[in-house]
């Protein structure tokens, strides 16, 4: 809905905050999703995502949500589906060239970005849309990638010592362990 979309854009800062919280929750749910199988949770999550984002942002389910880089103004509502800023045909007052009754999606995007903490992301050059992802859940894709990145970072920290001393590890694995340090060594309580 146009009016709701304008509301979401006016409150871009709040929605940015909300989105950060949502992402944290989704990332935390990664082990659960992995257990059930991402393929199985895809359909229900996409359904919820379609409903929520459809109401708030007139989401078109492109599958590669960039709302946080576009001032919470969905660029797929631009009749030309531009992902990197307004075209040269914006009408006086900031209205759309193709749909003169609608405010230009990208005029709103810059206004929204100015209200957001991470608004500078709007300056990043975005790639063309991957049309094969249409209809899939962007929430799941983002949280899954974030979770994988976190896992990778943890793994890297865990194995850095072993990698730095490969010879020692081959001869004497306990000299360069692939494990977290024991709680006693770090002074932290164990959770177990």
């Amino acid at each position: 809905m146009y009016r709701v979309r304008l509301f979401a854009n006016r409150h871009a800062r709040s929605f940015e905050w909300l989105y950060q919280r949502l992402e944290a929750v989704m990332v935390a749910l990664d082990p659960l999703f992995a257990k059930i199988g991402y393929g199985r949770v895809e359909a229900p999550v996409a359904l919820v995502e379609r409903g929520v984002k459809g109401l708030l942002f007139d989401c078109r389910m492109c599958g590669q949500c960039v709302l946080s880089s576009t001032g919470m103004s969905c660029p797929m509502n631009c009749p030309k589906e531009l992902r990197n800023g307004p075209c040269g045909g914006v009408r006086p007052g900031g209205y759309c060239e193709v749909k003169p009754w609608m405010r230009c999606v990208w005029v709103l995007a810059w206004e929204g970005a100015a209200r957001m903490q991470g608004g500078d992301k709007i300056r990043e050059v975005l790639p063309p849309v991957d049309r094969s992802l249409k209809g899939s859940s962007a929430w799941l894709r983002v949280s899954r990638e974030k979770a994988a990145q976190l896992r990778e970072a943890r793994e890297a920290a865990r194995t850095a010592l072993a990698r730095a001393f490969p010879g020692a590890r081959a001869n004497e694995p306990s000299a360069a362990p692939l494990a977290d340090e024991p709680a006693a060594a770090t002074g932290r309580e164990t959770r177990r």
């Binding site: 800023g85 307004p86 914006v90 006086p92 900031g94 990208w106 005029v107 810059w110």
Partner: peptide, 18 residues
């Protein structure tokens, strides 16, 4: 291309930078 005299006037230079 760029369109310096068309709205959003304040953001046109930033779009050029992009």
């Amino acid at each position: 291309a760029e369109n310096p005299c068309i709205e959003p006037l304040d953001w046109r230079p930033d779009r050029l930078a992009k």
